[in-house]
Design a binder for these strands. Structure first.
Lengths: 233, 233
DNA sequence: GCAGCCAAAAAGTCAGACTTATTTGTCACG
DNA sequence: CGTGACAAATAAGTCTGACTTTTTGGCTGC
């Protein structure tokens, strides 16, 4: 997606990564570099590069005379966007969405509070623009257009927080929102109450009301959690 | 630290990673693999593996005919524990600690609330044990022993939350706490009020009082933030 | 001034030989 | 029997050199 064809080793990762994150090789499984190279029909150098990347994600560990062993799930770098994408594409996608939505519910309200304190005029404008875009597409089966503005809105909040760690979750949130629209059951039109809340958050941020921005955003994320509980209990 | 001597490419990363994250090569800078291989006195294959790892962290991008270009900071995988460690070792360490402490202040209260709902008896026991260890080492210049229990406490909370994403922040929090004790000015003994709060959190979790656990933990993280504002304004 | 082509540059790929660490098994000795 | 040391097997690690591919930038000619 972000970097589609970045060489042979990338192609190897595109299939091996999802396989590992999907649990096809249980923790402790041992892979041999030579066998993998044969399987993907690449040279060992290319295979080694792929293994190094998996190793840097803590998905596997390469040890002499043993091979490439799959690490337990608890040790994976689950914040790596690539790992997140692989896991969201896999079969325990609902579990992932719950974890990530819970993360959102912790981060986004705080980020909104910070945004109310630090947002520039441009960022406030961007925010209201996104909110208006959501309103404009909230009726009439325009889920795709709505999604675009929804993603942009949350990304704008996280950016405006002024905190680098929060800002870097923009991709994750976008992934979650996109997943909700595309793969899970969603009503034909978004919840009108949610749309209103987004507009109010934009207003609160512009007004510099941190407490209100935080509280309203909390309502949004709680709504997202409830939605998940209803649709995938 | 976690995997010290994992081969030649690891040694290369140990010096090249910190250099890049420290901003010694400004975004857009171009490195050549051959030159790097010469500089570190390793073969090109080894150098390529190192570059692949840096690429997977989004620190650099390798493009044909142009070379290995350093990416802008905003694109780095700042949640990668390795990247966090490199940056904390660098010169903008104070800025890092502020970002990470803000992240803590968003995550940990929510995690504590979840822990109060989901913690097992064993986890509650572990928690109170850690809190008692903190109390026992809160006086008499035993900062190192105190730190061990403090790290274990917060890790226990995050684990007990039952959320994978929260749990994986245990290393980050430990790193922040260790950094505060080792590098920044810290009083000879920890703040007694903070120690008490930890004990109370353990109690609240055991009692299953989610609201109280969350509120108390929020007080702890607010304290940590204020401490940073005082010591590095 | 522009279109298209050519040449250089740097990453990408491959194959093969060699090195090194680690495990496992064996055998002799207590 | 157990135990320790030694030897063999194994798979990752490393290096080298030749070759390919893509991209860029300049040059030519219209």
């Amino acid at each position: 997606m972000s970097t589609p064809g970045r060489g042979l080793h990338g192609h190897v990762l595109d299939t091996l990564g999802p396989e590992i994150t999907a649990g096809e090789y249980p923790p402790g499984s041992v892979l041999r570099t030579d066998e993998l190279a044969q399987r993907f029909d690449v040279s060992r150098s290319v295979m080694r590069e792929a293994v190094r990347v998996l190793e840097s994600m803590h998905l596997v560990q390469s040890r002499r005379r043993v091979g490439v062993t799959v690490r337990p799930t608890a040790e994976w770098n689950v914040y790596d966007p690539q790992v997140i994408r692989w896991r969201l594409a896999g079969k325990d996608r609902p579990r992932q969405l719950r974890s990530l939505t819970l993360l959102r519910s912790a981060i986004e309200p705080v980020a909104a509070g910070l945004a109310a304190r630090h947002a520039t005029a441009e960022q406030c404008a961007e925010l209201t623009e996104c909110a208006l875009g959501m309103v404009a597409n909230s009726r009439g089966h325009k889920l795709e257009e709505y999604l675009v503005h929804d993603m942009a809105f949350h990304r704008a909040i996280l950016d405006a927080s002024g905190n680098e760690m929060f800002a870097r979750l923009g991709d994750v949130v976008a992934e979650v929102l996109a997943g909700r629209t595309h793969h899970d059951v969603m009503f034909e039109d978004p919840d009108p109450a949610a749309v209103t809340l987004h507009v109010q958050v934009a207003e609160a941020v512009r007004a510099g009301d941190a407490v209100r921005a935080e509280e309203l955003t909390r309502e949004i994320t709680v709504g997202a959690l409830q939605e998940l509980d209803i649709l995938a209990p």
